[in-house]
Amino acid sequence: MNALENRPSLRAAEVGAVRGVGKRYGKFTAVDEVSFSLRAHAVYGLLGRNGAGKSTLMRMLAGHAQPTTGSVAVFGENPFENDEVTRRICFAAENQVYPDAFRIKDVLAAARLLYPDWDQAYADDLVEVFDLPVDRRIGKLSRGMRSAVGIVTGLASRAPLTMFDEPYLGLDATARQLFYGRLIADYAENPRTILLSTHLIDEVSGLLEHVLVIDRGRLVIDEEAEALRGRAISVSGPTDTVEKFTYAMTRLHEEQLMGRSRVTVLGDADDPQHARVLGLDVESVSLQDLVVKSAMTGERR
């Protein structure tokens, strides 16, 4: 039994609300008219290419930046320079800046003061798991160690909204698996809202309950991970049959070779059966594929 199942009322509550948010830097539009909600006790994946706007969105949710248009609310309030709200948010940023003289243990001591739900015993345990030299200055750490410091802070903060921005840079496959394992185990014991941005989609896709895909500043997919797995299929066969079958569907990607087409669509649960009746081949599509294909097509929807 995990604690999630016992608290149905909390699951439904809204933790974050992003409404029509845009962020411009001069003439560059980093985020364009994005709206979505984050509910309590769920793991979200924020997926997309480099420069798609993932970090910018996270910075706005963390209260580190203000939107140019639209509004961001976390726990019902604007998080920007709002201590009451930001104490309940932990943002493990990709390029976290620390004071020059800070050693790892200073970072963890500061985090302990900052986050009301901080678990020191758990932090100590994680420091050991990731083999971190607590007396070493942050400036002297390898990229992987810096990432591990972010992971320890993010997990031990137990913040009701915890965000990890590409938390694995410089970590090898073993250390990444350690992180995923610890994340799942701790999340089962201490449910909270987790937003994880990543390129390594295959590695984390099982962890995600909800998927947000952002492409060139715009939100292109906002859906439950399991529903996406069920709906995303790739259909191939003679081009005219494929065209007829996929005509009215949300088409994410298409390829043609020698009179044959392969089209990736978001369909309904019974579409695979219909496609097979028409003699078409149906393949399932992984989240990784789906994200890559949505980002390759340009305009959708």
Partner: peptide
């Protein structure tokens, strides 16, 4: 559920 989640590295809700 927790054992299944940990073993397969999947979300406990799933």
């Amino acid at each position: 559920t927790t054992e299944l989640a940990a073993f397969h590295r999947i979300n406990p809700a799933t």
